[in-house]
């Protein structure tokens, strides 16, 4: 039986976490992808390596990703699939547990490994333990930790695009608006390099020091929870257990002490750099390269050094 992936997209292409989800799904069966909204994104999904079929709908209730109609659509499609997957993004985490409950199955959240069709590895306790769980449910509903799977290539596939059926909109909620930050920088969960600031940044004004270095590296900007709570950085920058999980090639933690909740979001990065004035800070215990000192002195030096080729 085929497996279905609910993909996130930006209007023209699938997000990288969606392609990681397709890679995880490919271990379970023939992959079909459901794309809601822009037709260009459905065309892009058809190009992704390993995708056998794309289901697409531009119907009104799905356009803004409201959980109730999207879950109803997935439930209508479910009889054809053994597994239903989505990235563990804000959208996937919103919809998939609702789908699971409607199907009377226990959702398997944030998987980091596929053992077999019934058995999955998932982090618990902020990633301080890994549980291998076997599901007894007839159908599996899953969200996927994108950082744990290499994304499927964006090109190389040539799937057919079909119109998705429509399901009744339960009409329980309506979309009023969104404030989505526009940025030239790469998306946090897809970036090759991430530079993150913590509470020690002291103000949102000072966060520009992080941005300066990030722009020299073509990096995304992240933040610790403390920095977000203090208003130095917007909520969508938060890296950690309950924020975004990232695993870039290079993660630079600036003025971040390294609470376990933050480490949970970045400790699978390939190379970690910590810059902190407290040489006892726990962040140094996971860093490949540590630099002890005043970030307000070191960061401008770093920006200048990176400018030299």
């Amino acid at each position: 039986m085929a497996v279905l992936v609910l993909a996130d997209h930006d209007g023209s292409a699938l997000t990288q976490p969606s392609r990681s989800t397709i890679a995880a799904a490919a271990k379970l069966g023939e992959v079909h992808v459901l794309v809601l909204g822009a037709a260009a994104a459905a065309q892009a999904a058809a190009q992704v390596a390993g995708v056998a079929k794309v289901l697409h709908s531009e119907a009104e209730p799905y356009a803004n990703g409201l959980a109730e109609p999207v879950a109803a659509l997935l439930v209508a499609l479910a009889p054809n699939y053994s597994h239903l997957l989505a990235p563990a993004s804000a959208a996937g985490k919103n919809v998939m547990p609702r789908v699971a409950a409607l199907l009377d199955v226990q959702v398997i959240s944030d998987i980091a490994g596929v053992v077999d069709a019934d058995t999955f590895v998932r982090p618990i306790y902020a990633g301080n333990a890994l549980a291998t769980v076997k599901s007894a449910d007839p159908k599996k509903v899953i969200t996927v930790r994108a950082a744990s799977f290499d994304p499927a290539a964006a090109t190389g596939g040539s799937a057919a695009v079909e119109a998705a059926p429509s399901a009744d909109d339960p009409g329980l909620s309506s979309f009023l608006g969104a404030e989505i930050a526009k940025s030239e920088r790469p998306e946090l969960t897809a970036a090759r390099i991430v530079v993150s600031g913590g509470r020690a940044m002291g103000s949102s004004e000072n966060f520009k020091i992080i941005e300066g270095v990030a722009d020299k590296l073509g990096a995304a900007v992240g933040a610790s929870r403390a920095a977000v709570d203090a208003g130095y950085a917007p909520n969508d920058h938060q890296v950690g257990q309950t924020g975004k999980i990232v695993a870039p090639e290079l993660y630079i933690a600036v003025g971040i002490s390294g609470a376990i909740q933050h480490l949970a979001g970045m400790k699978d990065s390939k190379v970690i750099v910590a810059i902190n004035k407290d040489e006892e800070a726990p962040i140094f215990s996971v860093a490949d390269y540590g630099l002890v000192g005043d970030l307000f002195k070191l960061m401008p030096e770093l920006e200048a050094e990176l400018a030299k080729k």
């Binding site: 409201l66 909620s173 309506s174 969104a178 404030e179 989505i180 969508d236």
Partner: peptide
């Protein structure tokens, strides 16, 4: 709180 920022819904 969503991935790119904030959105508002009416329930």
């Amino acid at each position: 709180e969503v991935d790119g920022g904030l959105e508002t819904v009416s329930l």
